[in-house]
Simulated scan of single mutants.
Amino acid sequence: MVRPGGPHRERQNIMSRRITGFTPSGELHLGNYFGAIKPLVDQQVPDRSIVFVSDLHALTLEHDPAEVRRRTLEFATVLLAAGADPARSIFLVQSHVPEHTELHYLLESATGYGEVRRMIQFKEKSRDSDRVRVSLLTYPVLMAADILLYHAGEVPVGADQRQHVELARDIATRFNAAYGPVFTVPHMVNPPVAARIMDLSRPTAKMSKSTSSGGTLRLLDSPDTLRRTVMRAVTDPGSAIEYDPGNRPGIANLLTILAACTGEDPVDAATRFSGYAQLKHAVADAVIATTDPIRHHYAELSHDPESVRKILRDGVIRARLIASDTVSAAKQAIGLLPA
């Protein structure tokens, strides 16, 4: 049975509720920090900000079970170290809230095969694989459940995930039209420009947490490792230092990183340097100054993993107050007999 005032009570504040998820594959890096972590930290509002580690999404490809568990706790700890505040955000692990998978199935019952089959990420990730998991095909529907479960009005998303949020909007609209107004139709929020931090060894490719590369600035890397990575960064022919992403992507990427760390404008920052080495040293200093507090706080939290687990358990309790109402409303609307 839907609790009195349940979903209707939640809709009073839905437009300002924002959700951000992190799949525990690879390692979190500077692009993740400026593109997703810092914006959520800066915009946390009690009971309206939801931050979660999407461990179920890590199961769509071949994986090591022990590694998924390890990275799930690591990601949660890094997010806390970077400023995710359980007093101002609902902070949880996806699989700890069973309503995610329960709503996933209900939404599959309102989604066409063709809709998920044409998702670009599915085509790309399944193209060279002999064994494609069904979860890879239906992962966008689970992502829709993640969003719709909490009546999120805002979803910060990069270009690679826009199609999935559009699918969530389509599913919500269709379900509401067919069965009644259960879900909030979310809208996308563009990430900040700083999210476009590129790989230092391939400045035309976005920095990736899943791809092994010598050009990634990982949040938990030591200062020496970060400095070596920056000093080895690919630059451009000639010696001019100017912010020109189209023609000089290597230098533009270094200036973008410097600007993200210091708050400067990359065009103005370019005028301060007379050579590549001088610029790289400044970038390395700025990156280390940005990541040092995160790394130190992470080390402190890692010494007491039970405290992190308690934060996650508390987040589950808060999350399920919203999620259980949503699932109850969806089950009733779609025609299931209440227990």
Rank of each mutant, 00 (worst) to 15 (best):
L226S: 03
R218W: 04
D244I: 06
Q161K: 04
A159G: 04
K125G: 05
P223H: 12
R228N: 12
L136G: 11
T204Q: 07
K209D: 02
V155S: 07
D160A: 09
R133N: 14
G215H: 04
P249E: 08
R169M: 11
T173L: 10
R218E: 13
V182I: 14
P140L: 15
R218K: 10
D221A: 14
G215K: 01
Y243W: 11
I197R: 05
D146A: 14
R174N: 05
L149M: 13
G153D: 10
V185R: 05
M207C: 09
N176T: 05
E166M: 05
L217C: 06
K125D: 04
D160M: 08
Y243H: 12
H187G: 02
N247M: 06
D146Q: 11
A144D: 12
E124W: 08
L137S: 14
H151Y: 10
D236S: 12
A152K: 06
I171N: 06
V185C: 14
M231V: 03
R202Q: 13
T235K: 08
V189I: 13
V132Q: 07
E154P: 01
N190C: 01
A240K: 09
A152N: 08
P186Y: 13
H187T: 06
G214V: 02
R162D: 00
N176V: 02
L226M: 04
V182A: 05
S201R: 09
P203A: 04
Y150R: 09
L217T: 04
D236R: 11
P203V: 07
L220R: 07
D236F: 12
P203W: 04
S208T: 09
S201Y: 01
T235H: 08
S208C: 05
R174G: 11
G246W: 05
S135Q: 15
V155M: 13
R196I: 03
D130Q: 11
G215F: 02
Y179E: 01
G215D: 02
V155H: 07
D128A: 11
D224Q: 15
G250E: 00
K206F: 10
R232D: 11
R169V: 10
K206Q: 07
G250S: 00
T204N: 08
V193G: 03
A168I: 03
Q121E: 03
F122M: 02
S129E: 15
